[in-house]
Design a protein around this nucleic acid. Structure first.
Lengths: 249, 249
DNA sequence: GTTAACTGTGCAAGATCGTGCAACAACAGG
DNA sequence: CCTGTTGTTGCACGATCTTGCACAGTTAAC
Protein backbone atom coordinates (compact mmCIF):
# COMPACT_ATOMS: atom_id res chain seq x y z
CA UNK A 1 0.00 0.00 0.00
CA UNK A 2 1.48 3.29 -1.16
CA UNK A 3 1.58 6.17 1.28
CA UNK A 4 -0.42 8.42 -1.03
CA UNK A 5 -3.15 5.82 -1.32
CA UNK A 6 -3.53 5.81 2.43
CA UNK A 7 -3.92 9.56 2.47
CA UNK A 8 -6.42 9.43 -0.36
CA UNK A 9 -8.39 6.86 1.57
CA UNK A 10 -8.32 9.04 4.67
CA UNK A 11 -9.53 12.10 2.76
CA UNK A 12 -12.21 9.97 1.19
CA UNK A 13 -13.39 8.72 4.58
CA UNK A 14 -13.30 12.27 5.89
CA UNK A 15 -15.52 13.46 3.06
CA UNK A 16 -17.95 10.54 3.19
CA UNK A 17 -18.29 9.91 6.92
CA UNK A 18 -17.24 13.22 8.38
CA UNK A 19 -14.68 11.67 10.68
CA UNK A 20 -11.74 9.30 10.88
CA UNK A 21 -10.79 7.14 13.85
CA UNK A 22 -7.11 6.30 13.76
CA UNK A 23 -7.49 2.92 15.40
CA UNK A 24 -10.25 1.74 13.06
CA UNK A 25 -8.49 2.76 9.88
CA UNK A 26 -5.24 1.21 11.03
CA UNK A 27 -7.01 -2.09 11.60
CA UNK A 28 -8.95 -1.86 8.33
CA UNK A 29 -5.87 -1.13 6.27
CA UNK A 30 -3.56 -3.44 8.16
CA UNK A 31 -0.99 -0.82 9.08
CA UNK A 32 0.11 0.51 12.42
CA UNK A 33 -1.74 3.34 14.11
CA UNK A 34 1.48 5.31 14.01
CA UNK A 35 1.40 5.51 10.24
CA UNK A 36 -2.21 6.67 10.25
CA UNK A 37 -1.43 9.24 12.91
CA UNK A 38 1.52 10.45 10.88
CA UNK A 39 -0.68 10.76 7.79
CA UNK A 40 -3.36 12.65 9.68
CA UNK A 41 -0.76 14.97 11.10
CA UNK A 42 0.57 15.76 7.62
CA UNK A 43 -2.92 16.28 6.23
CA UNK A 44 -3.69 18.58 9.14
CA UNK A 45 -0.48 20.50 8.50
CA UNK A 46 -1.65 21.03 4.94
CA UNK A 47 -4.99 22.26 6.21
CA UNK A 48 -6.86 19.30 4.72
CA UNK A 49 -8.32 18.08 7.99
CA UNK A 50 -8.47 18.94 11.64
CA UNK A 51 -6.73 16.73 14.12
CA UNK A 52 -8.80 15.71 17.13
CA UNK A 53 -8.19 13.34 19.98
CA UNK A 54 -8.54 9.85 18.51
CA UNK A 55 -8.60 10.78 14.85
CA UNK A 56 -9.56 13.69 12.62
CA UNK A 57 -12.54 15.57 11.21
CA UNK A 58 -12.99 17.59 8.00
CA UNK A 59 -12.17 21.28 7.85
CA UNK A 60 -15.32 23.12 8.96
CA UNK A 61 -16.90 25.35 6.32
CA UNK A 62 -16.72 28.32 8.66
CA UNK A 63 -12.93 28.21 8.59
CA UNK A 64 -12.86 28.31 4.81
CA UNK A 65 -10.68 31.13 3.52
CA UNK A 66 -12.18 34.56 3.07
CA UNK A 67 -11.90 34.21 -0.69
CA UNK A 68 -15.05 32.14 -0.75
CA UNK A 69 -16.94 34.87 1.00
CA UNK A 70 -16.08 37.20 -1.83
CA UNK A 71 -19.05 38.94 -3.32
CA UNK A 72 -21.21 38.92 -0.23
CA UNK A 73 -21.64 42.43 0.99
CA UNK A 74 -24.13 43.47 3.59
CA UNK A 75 -26.40 46.35 2.87
CA UNK A 76 -24.47 48.38 5.40
CA UNK A 77 -21.21 47.86 3.54
CA UNK A 78 -22.86 48.85 0.28
CA UNK A 79 -24.16 52.07 1.82
CA UNK A 80 -20.78 52.90 3.32
CA UNK A 81 -19.08 52.20 0.00
CA UNK A 82 -21.50 54.45 -1.83
CA UNK A 83 -20.93 57.24 0.68
CA UNK A 84 -17.15 56.83 0.38
CA UNK A 85 -17.30 57.01 -3.41
CA UNK A 86 -18.56 60.54 -2.94
CA UNK A 87 -15.24 61.45 -1.37
CA UNK A 88 -13.23 60.35 -4.40
CA UNK A 89 -12.01 63.44 -6.23
CA UNK A 90 -11.49 63.27 -10.00
CA UNK A 91 -7.86 63.09 -11.01
CA UNK A 92 -6.74 61.86 -7.61
CA UNK A 93 -4.75 58.81 -6.60
CA UNK A 94 -6.52 56.64 -4.06
CA UNK A 95 -5.56 53.56 -2.10
CA UNK A 96 -8.24 50.92 -1.66
CA UNK A 97 -7.64 48.52 1.21
CA UNK A 98 -8.66 44.84 1.05
CA UNK A 99 -12.11 43.88 2.25
CA UNK A 100 -15.71 43.59 1.15
CA UNK A 101 -16.46 47.28 1.63
CA UNK A 102 -13.55 48.43 -0.51
CA UNK A 103 -14.43 45.72 -3.03
CA UNK A 104 -17.87 47.29 -3.27
CA UNK A 105 -16.19 50.66 -3.73
CA UNK A 106 -14.03 49.31 -6.54
CA UNK A 107 -17.16 48.22 -8.39
CA UNK A 108 -18.70 51.68 -8.01
CA UNK A 109 -15.74 53.78 -9.17
CA UNK A 110 -16.91 56.62 -11.43
CA UNK A 111 -16.12 56.37 -15.12
CA UNK A 112 -14.02 59.01 -16.79
CA UNK A 113 -12.73 60.44 -13.53
CA UNK A 114 -9.08 59.95 -14.43
CA UNK A 115 -8.36 57.99 -11.28
CA UNK A 116 -5.33 56.06 -10.15
CA UNK A 117 -6.08 53.17 -7.81
CA UNK A 118 -3.50 51.47 -5.61
CA UNK A 119 -4.45 48.30 -3.74
CA UNK A 120 -2.86 45.31 -2.02
CA UNK A 121 -5.90 43.17 -2.81
CA UNK A 122 -6.04 41.19 -6.07
CA UNK A 123 -9.84 41.03 -5.88
CA UNK A 124 -10.15 44.78 -5.51
CA UNK A 125 -7.62 45.30 -8.29
CA UNK A 126 -9.61 43.15 -10.72
CA UNK A 127 -12.88 44.85 -9.78
CA UNK A 128 -11.37 48.30 -10.30
CA UNK A 129 -9.88 47.29 -13.64
CA UNK A 130 -13.15 45.84 -14.90
CA UNK A 131 -15.51 48.43 -13.51
CA UNK A 132 -13.73 51.66 -14.29
CA UNK A 133 -11.21 53.38 -16.52
CA UNK A 134 -8.78 53.91 -13.66
CA UNK A 135 -5.11 53.05 -13.81
CA UNK A 136 -4.63 50.25 -11.30
CA UNK A 137 -1.46 49.60 -9.34
CA UNK A 138 -1.20 46.35 -7.50
CA UNK A 139 0.93 46.13 -4.37
CA UNK A 140 2.84 42.86 -4.42
CA UNK A 141 3.75 40.57 -1.54
CA UNK A 142 2.72 37.33 0.08
CA UNK A 143 -1.03 36.83 0.11
CA UNK A 144 -2.52 36.11 3.49
CA UNK A 145 -4.63 33.00 3.38
CA UNK A 146 -7.41 34.50 5.40
CA UNK A 147 -8.11 37.79 3.72
CA UNK A 148 -6.23 37.44 0.43
CA UNK A 149 -4.26 40.62 0.86
CA UNK A 150 -0.61 41.22 0.03
CA UNK A 151 1.67 41.80 2.98
CA UNK A 152 5.14 41.18 4.29
CA UNK A 153 8.47 42.70 3.40
CA UNK A 154 7.86 42.81 -0.34
CA UNK A 155 4.65 44.75 0.17
CA UNK A 156 6.27 47.21 2.55
CA UNK A 157 9.09 47.83 0.12
CA UNK A 158 6.64 48.51 -2.69
CA UNK A 159 4.45 50.76 -0.54
CA UNK A 160 7.46 52.83 0.49
CA UNK A 161 7.84 53.93 -3.12
CA UNK A 162 4.23 54.93 -3.63
CA UNK A 163 2.29 58.04 -2.75
CA UNK A 164 -1.44 58.69 -2.75
CA UNK A 165 -3.97 61.35 -1.93
CA UNK A 166 -6.54 59.33 -0.01
CA UNK A 167 -6.35 55.94 1.68
CA UNK A 168 -9.69 54.20 2.16
CA UNK A 169 -8.94 51.99 5.12
CA UNK A 170 -10.91 48.91 6.08
CA UNK A 171 -10.61 47.46 9.58
CA UNK A 172 -12.56 44.93 11.61
CA UNK A 173 -12.83 47.01 14.76
CA UNK A 174 -13.55 50.70 15.39
CA UNK A 175 -13.76 51.63 19.03
CA UNK A 176 -13.51 54.97 20.83
CA UNK A 177 -11.09 53.50 23.35
CA UNK A 178 -9.10 50.91 21.40
CA UNK A 179 -8.99 52.80 18.14
CA UNK A 180 -8.77 50.87 14.86
CA UNK A 181 -8.00 47.16 15.10
CA UNK A 182 -7.72 44.18 12.77
CA UNK A 183 -7.41 40.42 13.13
CA UNK A 184 -4.04 39.87 11.50
CA UNK A 185 -0.75 41.29 12.67
CA UNK A 186 0.82 41.44 9.24
CA UNK A 187 -2.24 43.15 7.86
CA UNK A 188 -2.02 45.85 10.50
CA UNK A 189 1.56 46.60 9.49
CA UNK A 190 0.59 46.90 5.83
CA UNK A 191 -2.31 49.22 6.66
CA UNK A 192 -0.04 51.49 8.67
CA UNK A 193 2.46 51.64 5.82
CA UNK A 194 -0.28 52.58 3.37
CA UNK A 195 -1.57 55.26 5.72
CA UNK A 196 1.93 56.69 6.05
CA UNK A 197 2.20 57.13 2.28
CA UNK A 198 -1.20 58.80 1.89
CA UNK A 199 -2.03 62.43 2.48
CA UNK A 200 -5.37 61.47 4.01
CA UNK A 201 -6.72 58.33 5.60
CA UNK A 202 -10.44 57.66 5.70
CA UNK A 203 -11.92 54.71 7.59
CA UNK A 204 -14.84 52.73 6.25
CA UNK A 205 -17.14 51.98 9.18
CA UNK A 206 -19.95 49.64 8.24
CA UNK A 207 -22.38 48.94 11.03
CA UNK A 208 -20.89 45.72 12.40
CA UNK A 209 -17.46 47.29 12.87
CA UNK A 210 -18.51 50.13 15.12
CA UNK A 211 -17.78 49.36 18.74
CA UNK A 212 -15.92 46.17 17.84
CA UNK A 213 -12.34 45.44 18.90
CA UNK A 214 -9.99 42.96 17.21
CA UNK A 215 -6.67 41.57 18.26
CA UNK A 216 -4.14 43.90 16.66
CA UNK A 217 -4.11 47.71 16.76
CA UNK A 218 -3.74 49.51 13.45
CA UNK A 219 -3.92 53.21 14.16
CA UNK A 220 -5.25 55.65 16.71
CA UNK A 221 -8.44 57.36 15.74
CA UNK A 222 -6.57 60.64 15.96
CA UNK A 223 -4.40 59.53 13.05
CA UNK A 224 -7.23 59.35 10.53
CA UNK A 225 -8.81 62.24 8.71
CA UNK A 226 -12.34 60.96 8.47
CA UNK A 227 -14.70 58.07 9.14
CA UNK A 228 -17.48 57.04 6.80
CA UNK A 229 -20.38 55.65 8.82
CA UNK A 230 -23.43 53.88 7.49
CA UNK A 231 -26.04 56.66 7.19
CA UNK A 232 -28.68 54.20 8.41
CA UNK A 233 -26.66 52.88 11.34
CA UNK A 234 -28.66 53.42 14.50
CA UNK A 235 -25.79 52.60 16.85
CA UNK A 236 -25.62 55.05 19.74
CA UNK A 237 -21.90 55.43 19.11
CA UNK A 238 -22.47 56.86 15.67
CA UNK A 239 -24.93 59.41 16.95
CA UNK A 240 -22.77 60.32 19.90
CA UNK A 241 -20.42 63.22 20.18
CA UNK A 242 -17.66 60.72 19.35
CA UNK A 243 -19.18 59.65 16.11
CA UNK A 244 -20.00 63.18 15.10
CA UNK A 245 -16.55 64.49 15.78
CA UNK A 246 -14.98 61.66 13.84
CA UNK A 247 -17.26 62.11 10.92
CA UNK A 248 -16.17 65.68 10.61
CA UNK A 249 -12.56 65.22 11.52
CA UNK B 1 10.83 -6.10 -24.08
CA UNK B 2 11.20 -2.70 -25.71
CA UNK B 3 11.43 0.39 -23.56
CA UNK B 4 8.38 1.97 -25.17
CA UNK B 5 6.34 -1.17 -24.52
CA UNK B 6 7.24 -0.97 -20.87
CA UNK B 7 6.17 2.64 -20.68
CA UNK B 8 2.93 1.88 -22.47
CA UNK B 9 2.27 -0.89 -20.02
CA UNK B 10 3.00 1.44 -17.11
CA UNK B 11 0.64 4.12 -18.44
CA UNK B 12 -1.96 1.43 -18.99
CA UNK B 13 -1.62 0.20 -15.43
CA UNK B 14 -1.76 3.77 -14.21
CA UNK B 15 -5.02 4.37 -16.06
CA UNK B 16 -6.63 1.07 -15.09
CA UNK B 17 -5.55 0.64 -11.48
CA UNK B 18 -4.70 4.16 -10.45
CA UNK B 19 -1.27 3.22 -9.22
CA UNK B 20 1.95 1.45 -10.09
CA UNK B 21 4.25 -0.29 -7.64
CA UNK B 22 7.76 -0.47 -9.04
CA UNK B 23 8.61 -3.75 -7.38
CA UNK B 24 5.49 -5.54 -8.60
CA UNK B 25 5.84 -4.44 -12.20
CA UNK B 26 9.52 -5.29 -12.25
CA UNK B 27 8.72 -8.82 -11.13
CA UNK B 28 5.78 -9.17 -13.51
CA UNK B 29 7.77 -8.02 -16.53
CA UNK B 30 10.97 -9.72 -15.54
CA UNK B 31 13.13 -6.61 -15.62
CA UNK B 32 15.05 -4.88 -12.89
CA UNK B 33 13.40 -2.37 -10.64
CA UNK B 34 15.95 0.16 -11.86
CA UNK B 35 14.51 0.12 -15.36
CA UNK B 36 10.98 0.58 -14.05
CA UNK B 37 12.13 3.40 -11.84
CA UNK B 38 13.89 5.02 -14.77
CA UNK B 39 10.73 4.72 -16.86
CA UNK B 40 8.58 6.20 -14.14
CA UNK B 41 11.01 9.04 -13.69
CA UNK B 42 10.88 9.86 -17.39
CA UNK B 43 7.11 9.64 -17.49
CA UNK B 44 6.95 11.94 -14.49
CA UNK B 45 9.33 14.39 -16.17
CA UNK B 46 6.97 14.47 -19.14
CA UNK B 47 4.05 15.12 -16.83
CA UNK B 48 2.41 11.76 -17.55
CA UNK B 49 2.41 10.50 -13.97
CA UNK B 50 3.40 11.54 -10.49
CA UNK B 51 6.22 9.80 -8.76
CA UNK B 52 5.64 8.66 -5.21
CA UNK B 53 7.67 6.59 -2.81
CA UNK B 54 7.34 3.01 -4.01
CA UNK B 55 5.89 3.69 -7.43
CA UNK B 56 3.70 6.25 -9.15
CA UNK B 57 0.12 7.49 -9.41
CA UNK B 58 -1.76 9.17 -12.29
CA UNK B 59 -1.83 12.92 -12.72
CA UNK B 60 -4.84 14.12 -10.75
CA UNK B 61 -7.77 15.07 -12.94
CA UNK B 62 -9.16 18.57 -12.87
CA UNK B 63 -11.55 19.36 -10.07
CA UNK B 64 -14.83 17.51 -10.32
CA UNK B 65 -17.06 20.60 -10.56
CA UNK B 66 -14.86 21.91 -13.34
CA UNK B 67 -15.21 18.70 -15.29
CA UNK B 68 -18.94 18.46 -14.85
CA UNK B 69 -19.35 22.08 -15.85
CA UNK B 70 -17.41 21.81 -19.05
CA UNK B 71 -18.11 18.20 -19.92
CA UNK B 72 -15.61 15.48 -20.62
CA UNK B 73 -14.22 17.13 -23.72
CA UNK B 74 -12.02 19.74 -22.09
CA UNK B 75 -10.44 22.17 -24.47
CA UNK B 76 -6.84 22.36 -25.48
CA UNK B 77 -5.85 24.77 -22.73
CA UNK B 78 -7.25 22.49 -20.07
CA UNK B 79 -5.31 19.55 -21.43
CA UNK B 80 -2.08 21.53 -21.59
CA UNK B 81 -2.65 22.79 -18.05
CA UNK B 82 -3.26 19.27 -16.82
CA UNK B 83 -0.08 18.02 -18.45
CA UNK B 84 1.89 20.93 -17.02
CA UNK B 85 0.60 20.19 -13.53
CA UNK B 86 2.45 16.92 -13.77
CA UNK B 87 5.70 18.87 -14.03
CA UNK B 88 5.13 20.64 -10.73
CA UNK B 89 7.42 19.09 -8.17
CA UNK B 90 6.34 19.00 -4.53
CA UNK B 91 8.17 21.52 -2.40
CA UNK B 92 9.17 23.66 -5.34
CA UNK B 93 8.64 27.32 -6.07
CA UNK B 94 6.88 27.97 -9.36
CA UNK B 95 6.01 31.08 -11.31
CA UNK B 96 2.64 31.10 -13.04
CA UNK B 97 2.33 33.61 -15.84
CA UNK B 98 -0.93 35.42 -16.60
CA UNK B 99 -3.34 33.80 -19.02
CA UNK B 100 -6.18 31.33 -19.27
CA UNK B 101 -3.91 28.28 -19.42
CA UNK B 102 -2.03 29.24 -16.28
CA UNK B 103 -5.34 30.16 -14.67
CA UNK B 104 -6.47 26.61 -15.35
CA UNK B 105 -3.21 25.37 -13.84
CA UNK B 106 -3.77 27.45 -10.72
CA UNK B 107 -7.15 25.76 -10.23
CA UNK B 108 -5.56 22.30 -10.55
CA UNK B 109 -2.64 22.74 -8.18
CA UNK B 110 -2.18 19.61 -6.09
CA UNK B 111 -3.16 19.80 -2.44
CA UNK B 112 -0.60 19.25 0.24
CA UNK B 113 2.36 19.58 -2.12
CA UNK B 114 4.01 22.35 -0.12
CA UNK B 115 4.18 24.70 -3.08
CA UNK B 116 5.12 28.34 -3.39
CA UNK B 117 3.44 30.17 -6.24
CA UNK B 118 4.62 33.49 -7.67
CA UNK B 119 2.45 35.30 -10.19
CA UNK B 120 1.99 38.76 -11.68
CA UNK B 121 -1.70 38.03 -12.32
CA UNK B 122 -4.29 38.83 -9.63
CA UNK B 123 -6.72 36.33 -11.12
CA UNK B 124 -4.16 33.52 -11.03
CA UNK B 125 -3.19 34.51 -7.49
CA UNK B 126 -6.77 34.28 -6.26
CA UNK B 127 -7.30 30.94 -8.00
CA UNK B 128 -4.14 29.50 -6.48
CA UNK B 129 -5.08 30.76 -3.05
CA UNK B 130 -8.57 29.37 -3.33
CA UNK B 131 -7.80 26.03 -4.88
CA UNK B 132 -4.67 24.92 -3.10
CA UNK B 133 -2.66 25.17 0.08
CA UNK B 134 0.23 26.90 -1.64
CA UNK B 135 1.90 30.05 -0.40
CA UNK B 136 1.10 32.71 -2.96
CA UNK B 137 3.32 35.67 -3.77
CA UNK B 138 1.86 38.40 -5.89
CA UNK B 139 4.13 40.49 -8.09
CA UNK B 140 3.02 44.11 -7.86
CA UNK B 141 2.98 46.75 -10.55
CA UNK B 142 0.64 48.55 -12.88
CA UNK B 143 -2.06 46.29 -14.26
CA UNK B 144 -2.30 46.22 -18.01
CA UNK B 145 -5.84 46.90 -19.12
CA UNK B 146 -5.74 44.21 -21.73
CA UNK B 147 -4.60 41.14 -19.85
CA UNK B 148 -4.77 42.26 -16.21
CA UNK B 149 -1.17 41.46 -15.50
CA UNK B 150 1.26 43.48 -13.40
CA UNK B 151 4.10 45.09 -15.28
CA UNK B 152 6.31 48.15 -15.43
CA UNK B 153 9.13 49.29 -13.21
CA UNK B 154 7.53 48.25 -9.95
CA UNK B 155 7.05 44.72 -11.24
CA UNK B 156 10.60 44.47 -12.55
CA UNK B 157 11.97 45.66 -9.24
CA UNK B 158 9.95 43.06 -7.35
CA UNK B 159 10.88 40.28 -9.76
CA UNK B 160 14.57 41.07 -9.40
CA UNK B 161 14.31 40.05 -5.77
CA UNK B 162 12.57 36.75 -6.36
CA UNK B 163 13.86 33.34 -7.38
CA UNK B 164 11.96 30.27 -8.54
CA UNK B 165 12.51 26.73 -9.75
CA UNK B 166 10.18 26.63 -12.72
CA UNK B 167 8.50 29.38 -14.73
CA UNK B 168 5.36 28.30 -16.58
CA UNK B 169 5.31 30.79 -19.42
CA UNK B 170 2.25 31.68 -21.44
CA UNK B 171 2.65 33.41 -24.79
CA UNK B 172 0.38 34.08 -27.75
CA UNK B 173 2.75 32.82 -30.42
CA UNK B 174 5.09 29.82 -30.66
CA UNK B 175 6.88 29.53 -33.96
CA UNK B 176 10.00 27.62 -35.01
CA UNK B 177 11.36 30.68 -36.78
CA UNK B 178 10.11 33.64 -34.73
CA UNK B 179 10.35 31.94 -31.34
CA UNK B 180 8.01 33.02 -28.55
CA UNK B 181 5.99 36.19 -29.06
CA UNK B 182 3.29 38.16 -27.29
CA UNK B 183 1.01 41.07 -28.08
CA UNK B 184 2.15 43.61 -25.51
CA UNK B 185 5.60 45.10 -25.25
CA UNK B 186 5.51 45.61 -21.52
CA UNK B 187 4.30 42.08 -21.01
CA UNK B 188 7.24 40.71 -22.97
CA UNK B 189 9.64 42.56 -20.70
CA UNK B 190 7.96 41.15 -17.59
CA UNK B 191 8.06 37.63 -18.98
CA UNK B 192 11.76 37.91 -19.74
CA UNK B 193 12.46 39.14 -16.23
CA UNK B 194 10.54 36.23 -14.74
CA UNK B 195 12.40 33.77 -16.94
CA UNK B 196 15.72 35.26 -15.86
CA UNK B 197 14.87 34.62 -12.20
CA UNK B 198 13.79 31.00 -12.73
CA UNK B 199 16.01 27.97 -13.00
CA UNK B 200 13.77 26.51 -15.71
CA UNK B 201 11.28 27.98 -18.13
CA UNK B 202 8.52 25.84 -19.57
CA UNK B 203 6.20 27.11 -22.28
CA UNK B 204 2.52 26.22 -22.35
CA UNK B 205 1.61 25.53 -25.96
CA UNK B 206 -2.12 25.06 -26.38
CA UNK B 207 -3.15 24.24 -29.91
CA UNK B 208 -4.00 27.73 -31.16
CA UNK B 209 -0.58 29.11 -30.18
CA UNK B 210 1.52 26.68 -32.18
CA UNK B 211 2.71 28.25 -35.42
CA UNK B 212 1.32 31.68 -34.46
CA UNK B 213 3.42 34.84 -34.34
CA UNK B 214 2.58 37.99 -32.38
CA UNK B 215 4.02 41.49 -32.45
CA UNK B 216 6.69 41.42 -29.74
CA UNK B 217 9.39 38.78 -29.24
CA UNK B 218 9.71 37.31 -25.74
CA UNK B 219 12.43 34.68 -25.89
CA UNK B 220 14.17 32.39 -28.32
CA UNK B 221 13.02 28.82 -28.24
CA UNK B 222 16.56 27.86 -27.30
CA UNK B 223 16.12 29.77 -24.05
CA UNK B 224 13.36 27.54 -22.71
CA UNK B 225 13.78 24.14 -21.11
CA UNK B 226 10.60 22.50 -22.27
CA UNK B 227 7.33 22.98 -24.12
CA UNK B 228 4.06 21.41 -23.05
CA UNK B 229 1.94 20.64 -26.11
CA UNK B 230 -1.65 19.56 -26.17
CA UNK B 231 -1.46 15.75 -26.27
CA UNK B 232 -4.40 15.77 -28.70
CA UNK B 233 -3.06 18.50 -30.94
CA UNK B 234 -2.86 17.15 -34.50
CA UNK B 235 -0.85 20.08 -35.85
CA UNK B 236 1.98 18.90 -38.10
CA UNK B 237 4.35 21.15 -36.19
CA UNK B 238 3.78 19.27 -32.95
CA UNK B 239 4.50 15.94 -34.53
CA UNK B 240 7.47 17.27 -36.43
CA UNK B 241 11.06 16.94 -35.46
CA UNK B 242 10.78 20.50 -34.16
CA UNK B 243 7.96 19.68 -31.80
CA UNK B 244 9.61 16.54 -30.62
CA UNK B 245 12.94 18.10 -29.86
CA UNK B 246 11.26 20.87 -27.92
CA UNK B 247 9.10 18.52 -26.00
CA UNK B 248 12.16 16.70 -24.77
CA UNK B 249 14.42 19.70 -24.40
C1' DG C 1 -7.90 11.22 41.64
C1' DT C 2 -7.32 7.31 39.15
C1' DT C 3 -7.19 4.90 34.89
C1' DA C 4 -7.04 3.96 30.21
C1' DA C 5 -6.44 5.81 25.85
C1' DC C 6 -4.05 8.80 22.99
C1' DT C 7 -0.03 11.61 21.45
C1' DG C 8 4.69 13.07 20.03
C1' DT C 9 9.44 11.77 19.79
C1' DG C 10 13.46 9.07 19.22
C1' DC C 11 15.27 5.06 17.20
C1' DA C 12 16.54 1.08 14.43
C1' DA C 13 15.39 -2.00 10.58
C1' DG C 14 14.11 -2.35 6.16
C1' DA C 15 12.69 -0.51 1.73
C1' DT C 16 13.42 2.68 -1.81
C1' DC C 17 15.99 6.25 -4.25
C1' DG C 18 19.51 8.53 -7.20
C1' DT C 19 24.01 8.23 -9.14
C1' DG C 20 28.03 6.37 -11.08
C1' DC C 21 29.85 2.60 -13.57
C1' DA C 22 30.58 -1.22 -16.57
C1' DA C 23 28.71 -4.50 -19.89
C1' DC C 24 26.21 -4.98 -23.89
C1' DA C 25 23.41 -4.15 -28.07
C1' DA C 26 22.14 -1.12 -31.90
C1' DC C 27 23.71 1.87 -35.22
C1' DA C 28 26.26 4.91 -38.55
C1' DG C 29 30.28 5.82 -41.11
C1' DG C 30 34.50 4.39 -43.12
C1' DC D 1 33.85 -5.98 -41.99
C1' DC D 2 35.59 -2.97 -38.54
C1' DT D 3 35.19 0.83 -35.32
C1' DG D 4 33.60 4.58 -32.64
C1' DT D 5 29.33 6.36 -30.81
C1' DT D 6 25.09 6.22 -28.65
C1' DG D 7 21.62 4.35 -25.77
C1' DT D 8 19.95 0.81 -22.67
C1' DT D 9 20.36 -2.27 -18.88
C1' DG D 10 21.66 -4.21 -14.49
C1' DC D 11 24.50 -3.73 -10.38
C1' DA D 12 26.80 -1.47 -6.40
C1' DC D 13 26.71 1.93 -2.98
C1' DG D 14 25.67 5.66 -0.09
C1' DA D 15 21.75 8.62 1.00
C1' DT D 16 17.05 9.11 2.04
C1' DC D 17 12.51 7.77 3.31
C1' DT D 18 9.03 4.98 5.62
C1' DT D 19 7.53 2.13 9.19
C1' DG D 20 6.70 -0.06 13.55
C1' DC D 21 8.05 -0.11 18.31
C1' DA D 22 9.34 1.73 22.85
C1' DC D 23 8.73 5.31 26.09
C1' DA D 24 7.33 9.26 28.44
C1' DG D 25 4.08 13.04 28.60
C1' DT D 26 -0.79 14.48 27.92
C1' DT D 27 -5.74 14.10 27.57
C1' DA D 28 -10.30 12.40 28.32
C1' DA D 29 -13.39 9.69 31.10
C1' DC D 30 -15.00 7.63 35.10
Amino acid sequence: MLGVQRKDHLLDLLAREGRVVAKEVAAALGVSEDSIRRDLRELADSGLCIRVYGGAVPVPAADAPEVSRRGIATDSKERVARAAIGLVRPGSTIVLDAGTTTLAMARMLPHGADLTVITPSPAVALAALEGSQARVFLVGGELSRHSAVAGGGLALEAIAHLAADVFFLGVTGIDPGQGLTTGELDDAVTKRALAARSAETIVLASAEKVGAVSRFPVLDLAAVHGVVFDPEDASPLVGSEWGRSLRLA
